[in-house]
Design a protein around this nucleic acid. Sequence first.
RNA 1: GGGCCCGUAGCUCAGCAUGGAUAGAGCGCCGGCCUUCUAAGCCGGAGGUCGCGGGUUCGAGUCCCGCCGGGCCCGCCA
Length: 627
Amino acid sequence: MTIKRLFEEAERLLSEAGLKGVKISSPRSPEFGEAYTPYPFEEARRSGGNPLELAEKIASRLGRGELIGRVEAAPPGYINFYADWKKFSEYTLREVMRLGARGYGGSSEGEGKVILVEHTSVNPNKALHIGHARNVYLGDTLARIFAKTGHRVYVLNYVDDSGAQMASVILGFLELKMPMEAPTGVRFDEYCGDQVYVEVSRRVEADRSLEERLRALAKRIEDRSSEEFRYARLVADKVLANQLLTCWRLGARYDLLFRESDVVVSGLWAKTFNLLLEKGIIYLAREGANRGCWCVDLSSHPTLSKEGDEILVKSDGSTTYVARDIAFALWKLGESDVKITGKVWGRNLDNTPITITDTESGSPITLPKPHMVLTVVGSEQRRPQEVVRYVLSRLGVDGGRYVHYSYERVSLSPESARRLGLETAEGKAVQMSGRRGIYFKADEVLDELKRLAAEEVRKRHPYWPGERVDEVSEAIARGALRYSILKSEAEKTVIFDLREAMRLEGDTGPYIQYTMARSYRILEKARDAGIEAKPTPYGDLASEEWMLTRSISFLPQVIETSAKTLRLRQLITHSREMAVHFNEFYEKCPVIDGGEAAPFRLALVQAYITAQSSAMELIGIPVLQEM
RNA sequence: GGGCCCGUAGCUCAGCAUGGAUAGAGCGCCGGCCUUCUAAGCCGGAGGUCGCGGGUUCGAGUCCCGCCGGGCCCGCCA
């Protein structure tokens, strides 16, 4: 496939010259060609020769390829392979045309492999803030990449409807008698998070006795026959329905909503507990700080052993998050025979059904045994995730199948924190906190972005109907936020700055969207002018034409690497690179008035649209034909 | 104290997985380009001891060790 074909050719030329298994890499600059090998350096080390002389000798021995136009030795000792621009661009354009946006960049790499991606997993007691949005964006993009590379992907959202956070809002409703209806014009999830949860947290902090009641409530929520259980379900379902509206707006889709409470209710936990007991992995603490608790013995773990054993069952008999997560992990991995039942909850925007666990009236949920379970969870949960992985390995489950996709949190820049009325220590970022009400909600940020985008759209299209302005500015807002959050690699803390996220120029989602609008306009004008696309170059290529073709040809390899390394950033960088080269091409190479160049350039524009659509689909930036 | 992550231009970030050829963008700043396919764009300029110190190597921003600075975890929270 495109650039890969060129690599294969370079390999073939080298092996024909007697050099087998030589490493071929992508050069960081086009002046060094489309492929290179530092092989002469290795050879020189072995034989003590001069790398450059060796490179020259090897290069002169190499034959011609079909797509490789020339091979050159370059100081201090590389061998560079240069594509034959004309042949290679025709080949690339034909490939792109043949495969289309769906197929281009895809592969069958993951054929026959099932991957389960768990993301979102927000307590159903609040609206999503931008920290949650990062989780959704990462998980959703990973799922898209896996699907593109031929995997069967199932997306799970673990609905954390047990534990203290859930108990907090129930406490607010049942004991502090806060109204169970949101004020008019306010969404229920926002009301729960912004008002109930924050207020209850404030009161608990002020009144220690409430802490006891909170703990008791958390336990009663686990009892399916209790009134509190019913209330928790009611509230959780209502909030969840609201949260999913946000998730869809962020571009996500789900196959299964798994209620955390069902881990206990379904008997999955009980069965897991017995298994752990049987295998001697857990023990009942008779004395010490953990007296009365069931714990995992971590004494033989290389690092966790220093931090004491992990509690799975509290002294009051209720489970901890880690306990539930171990049971859930076993089920996700297809290593538990406990039947989980569910029913259809609704449909995603793409019309695929969403199932939700339901122990009362559902039918059995069956997932194929996955090759990998990827859990997108913040880095602060590294320890508990490692405990889960460790317990799995002690149960004889291959720990490599259970992957914690960790990411650093989103903090607020001092300027943005000030907008929330917070004092900040000189120049320091501020941690978000749902409990203390310090956060930007995903929807409010999207709304602000949308307002800004709408202003710009109206400037350019004063006669567009409001509906159209709304639709386009929404797409711009979605692209802008998704890009700005995904721009940072997962292991880096995102310092969220509202003004920075609101930019529509430069290194942003809208920059890429804009190039698509420009190319669609060319298509339209070309149609009117009766120009027909031809992938055969009209003569020697202009460097802008070549650079655009070249970046298009690299896309499949970039996608493949992203799927392998789970690094999303390189895909984002590449999408932007294609856009930059398109803009340069756009400035220098007229299509409509391109004369004899017009048919080839039109084919190139088409190829750009196809390739960039493919990339944007993966990143989750909406494609606009006009903006 | 122990463990994990981060430290590259004034700011926000690429590059590190697989060491290699002059360290790249964007924002901001300075200066140009709209009778020509949407200027949400393009071109040019200024701006860098790649946190510090060692080590490995023909070669280190990239690998190893130490230190410094920032974040997170070490809860009968999740």
